[in-house]
């Protein structure tokens, strides 16, 4: 079979599964899940160090150096300026120049602010970042983000952490049709079926955290998601049959032994 790599910002990825690193019950389970996922890209948040216990929450100490590509997010930002500030801090770590722009203006839905997201993307692209904006599933907005220089666009399936699955498959289909950059479905997925659906609609990849980290068995769910993403990708590339209203026989009618 032909190799099917995902190219983003000059990088070639074998895995189409981007895994978030929040919410896991403990570092051991997280390690297991990361391994089972096969993910090469891991997302992180940027936060203040707890100066009372600086050892406590340094997640990087558990990861094999160089084994993963880091995608820090700008979570907590409510404006483009705040997102730009967090992105600069993330890059100053010298760990990655990729950034997931994430700007939420509403605490109940955490839906991305489209205007601020576009503005932050414009600024960060000019500053040389590889920008992957988490965005509304709006085809025109995704196009605008692409034109602003986003390396990929990441429309949400549903609000973050809801597990509601793909609320607007029609929009995602349009986004994929129009896009000249990879489309990564980010946020709101719940099960392997959701990941598979996104991939069958032509998403280049899927970014998930909650459905893996909060599953009863995160490592097993990570494996399920990995397989679903691979299956969905293959199904998309293979091309599904058209839907028909009435039956068509799979067994040939010729030579039937009954009169």
């Amino acid at each position: 079979m032909k190799t099917d790599v995902l190219r983003i910002g000059g990088r070639e990825l074998q895995s189409r599964f981007f895994l978030g690193t929040g919410l896991f019950p403990n570092p051991y389970v997280q390690q297991e899940a990361i391994r089972a996922s096969g993910a090469e890209v891991l997302t992180f948040a940027i936060r203040r160090i707890n100066l009372e216990a600086p050892e406590d929450d340094s997640i990087l100490q558990y990861l094999e150096p160089g084994a993963f590509h880091f995608l820090p997010n700008t979570s907590g930002a409510r404006t483009a300026d705040e997102a730009v500030r967090i992105a600069r801090l993330a890059r100053a770590s010298n760990l990655s120049d990729w950034v997931k722009v994430e700007i939420s203006a509403n605490e109940r839905t955490l839906l991305p602010d489209p205007v601020e997201t576009l503005r932050a993307t414009e600024i960060l692209v000019k500053e040389g970042f590889t920008v992957l904006p988490y965005t509304s599933d709006d085809p025109i907005l995704c196009k605008r983000l692409e034109e602003a220089g986003a390396a990929a666009v990441m429309p949400g399936a549903a609000p973050i952490g809801t597990g509601l699955g793909l609320l607007n498959p029609y929009n995602l289909g349009l986004i994929v049709e129009e896009a000249n950059v990879p489309v990564i479905v980010d946020a709101g997925l719940g099960s392997a079926a959701d990941a598979l659906q996104a991939m069958e609609l032509g998403a280049a990849g899927v970014l998930m955290n909650n459905p893996v980290a909060k599953a009863k068995d995160p490592a097993r769910m990570a494996q399920a998601m990995r397989l679903a993403i691979e299956a969905g990708r293959l199904s998309y590339l293979a091309g599904r049959v058209p839907k028909k209203r009435y039956a068509s026989a799979s067994s040939a009618p010729e030579g039937h032994l009954l009169p």
Partner: peptide, 10 residues
């Protein structure tokens, strides 16, 4: 001063 680092996040 702000002293920040990477933590778990999605």
């Amino acid at each position: 001063l702000e002293l920040v680092h990477f933590v778990g996040g999605g």
